[in-house]
């Protein structure tokens, strides 16, 4: 590049980089600054307290519990979503049998592809309303209504899905998975369609079963997409704020009795409701760190040799 061009490029970069610095990096730095104070969020008066907020954080059972819930989400949401999405994508693209010689999806795959994508077009807010109706704790709920009709549940003692410490996290996982599978199915489908058909045909001629062609051909060639999906889902699992705060009980959700608490809900409650804003900023910094570590670890752990085709 000639010298003049640097200036030209820099000129174009200046505005976006400035915006990024002002609206992304600077708030991060500010948050870190506030996390070292006893700021109460309503005025600009506060005292410097050093690392006290961070020390308190590690003795806060509620926040520690929230981290564990995030980790649980982190394990189960990506695994279940990716497995289901891979399975469906494979069935839609290469799972069909019957027609001699060709590799195709199961019958009606075009229809399913559209249907599976439906949940993805719903916003999280609508999703929360929808699933609150599904999990509703009296006979008016979809699940309870069906179970009562089938005689599996006593009408006087319906299952309070979102008010059961043992169910609430799983109930939330189901919502996220239901919502996400369609999107990752499309992502994986697109990647699968770029795999040359002759590889499958060659495998078929050699007598490969569905399972073998999936594990030996599809999965290795899809690895880039799976890796991306993993990072996205992982980041979503670290958040979960919208669903937890709207669906579960308590101020900013997290109920019953902190059993569905995630880091973001604890942070919001401390920030806005308890007025412990400095303390909440410390939580924000920890969240940022954990998410960064997570991204790095996942990208490293899933790194494989690239197969060119």
């Amino acid at each position: 590049m000639r010298k003049g061009q640097y200036r030209f490029v820099a000129g174009f970069l200046l505005v976006p980089v400035a915006l990024y610095l002002i609206f992304v990096i600077w708030p991060y730095i500010q948050t870190f600054g506030y996390s070292l104070t006893d700021w109460k969020g309503q005025s600009q008066t506060f005292d410097f307290v050093g690392l006290d907020n961070y020390k308190a954080l590690f003795q806060d059972d509620i926040f520690m519990g929230a981290i564990w819930h995030n980790i649980l989400f982190l394990v189960f949401i990506p695994v279940i979503t990716i497995l289901l999405a891979l399975f469906f994508a494979f069935m839609l693209n290469a799972g069909g049998r019957g027609r001699a010689g060709g590799v195709s999806g199961v019958a009606g795959s075009k229809f399913y592809r559209v249907v599976y994508f439906f949940p993805q077009v719903l916003s999280l807010a609508i999703l929360a309303v929808l699933f609150r109706a599904v999990y509703r704790s009296d006979g008016g709920g979809m699940l309870n209504g069906a179970l009562v009709k089938l005689g599996l549940v006593d009408a006087d003692r319906p299952v309070e899905w979102l008010n059961e410490p043992d169910f609430v996290l799983w109930a939330l996982i189901v919502v996220v998975v239901w919502h996400g599978v369609g999107f990752y199915l499309v992502l994986f489908s697109a990647a699968m369609q770029s795999i040359p058909k002759d590889i499958y045909e060659a495998a078929l001629i050699d007598g490969a079963s569905r399972g073998q062609s999936f594990f030996r051909i599809t999965l290795p060639l899809l690895w880039d997409s799976v890796q991306t999906a993993w990072v996205y889902l992982g980041i979503a699992a670290m958040d979960m704020f919208i669903l937890v705060s709207t669906m579960t009980s308590g101020e900013f959700g997290g109920g019953p009795d902190h059993h569905s608490e995630v880091m973001a809900t604890v942070m919001m409650r401390n920030f806005l409701y308890y007025g412990k804003s400095g303390y909440a900023c410390a939580m924000g910094v920890i969240m940022l760190l954990l998410t960064l570590i997570l991204s790095v670890v996942m990208l490293r752990a899933t790194r494989r040799e690239r197969i060119e085709f």
Binding site: R136, D138, G139, N144, A155, D156, L162, N163
Partner: peptide, 19 residues
């Protein structure tokens, strides 16, 4: 004694009040 309205523990204010 089971005198609570069934399911009321999980209902929000609109749902329970409407019931």
């Amino acid at each position: 004694k089971g005198y609570l309205m069934p399911g009321t523990n999980g209902l929000d204010h609109t749902e329970s009040q409407t019931r």
